[in-house]
Write a protein that binds this DNA or RNA. Structure first.
Lengths: 152, 152
DNA sequence: GCTTGACTTGGAGTGCACTTCAACCAATAT
DNA sequence: ATATTGGTTGAAGTGCACTCCAAGTCAAGC
């Protein structure tokens, strides 16, 4: 339970081994410790780190932000303030995502209710039952037509 | 107000003209009507459609889903049920995203509170202040060592 | 001793969603 | 008349985040 292979953490956190190695390679984790034969092992601290990564990535926090954070953690206490700022910026991004999601859910729910009530068939404009309009004349073409009429 | 150029809708909905043309090309919109010179114009119905696209894309609904929906709308009333199903499936996806977001926000808020309280310096395990462990021995290597000791 | 299976590496390939490009045309401003 | 502005096209390029691959090592089971 306390020390796991790459395979085991992979299953525990539903993330591919390739992705874990990729994350290490690009610096989303501190260097992962190895056994004598070179195989990675994940102690509880690293498992926690990985779980956090998976959680934050799932919600759309960028690789770049996580990379920067990781670097700063490794750089030590002098980056404490910058780390806090980074986390707060990411928090703001998530709150925006949350608002977007809320808006979309409202729209989707409304739309679904129209389907359920059968109203969608009658609802010709807006998003449903779009009718392709004819080609229209240009402003100046219309002007030209008037001119021609006037000059006739 | 009622009929806009590609530039104008682009500004109205904060989406690049290139993206609008791309959306049309791949079938995320019904064919956009043209003026006599070939330029696109967007009536209110199409503007509404575009607004919906932007909203749903922002929340992460896939191009593919929107494509399928668009095709079905153009195919007519026989697809009403399938459309409703598609929308409900997308709704489920958004709810999942919402849950992920909630989880991440909780974690982020917790972490930020640790930074604010100054606790993060002391919080050695878990995600912060990760210390690289030493290389550890393999199970069988340890066994072999015991064997060697035993055979001495 | 040989095969199986989990691991290692660096590098190439994939999928999605744009984004940019080059070459062109049409209308307006000087 | 010419330059500028704003549109058109199809094709190629970009950026992100993986994902796969080939070639190899290592330890265990038969």
């Amino acid at each position: 339970m306390s020390v796991l292979s790459i395979q085991e953490v992979s299953q525990k956190y539903a993330i591919k081994t390739d992705t874990i190695r990729y994350y290490e390679r690009i610096g989303l984790m501190p260097p992962v410790p190895r056994k004598a034969n070179g195989n990675r092992y994940f102690d509880e601290a690293l498992q926690g780190w990985l779980e956090m990564l998976v959680c934050l990535r799932r919600s759309g926090i960028s690789i770049e932000a996580l990379h920067d954070y990781t670097e700063m953690v490794q750089a030590g206490d002098k980056t404490l303030m910058a780390r806090q700022n980074l986390l707060e910026a990411q928090r703001t991004l998530l709150l925006e995502k949350q608002a977007d999601l809320e808006r979309s859910l409202k729209r989707l729910d409304h739309k679904i209710s129209l389907y359920k009530s059968g109203e969608i068939r009658a609802n010709k404009s807006y998003f449903e039952e779009y009718k392709i309009p004819e080609t229209i004349q240009l402003e100046n073409e219309r002007k030209r037509q008037f001119k021609e009429k006037g000059s006739l």
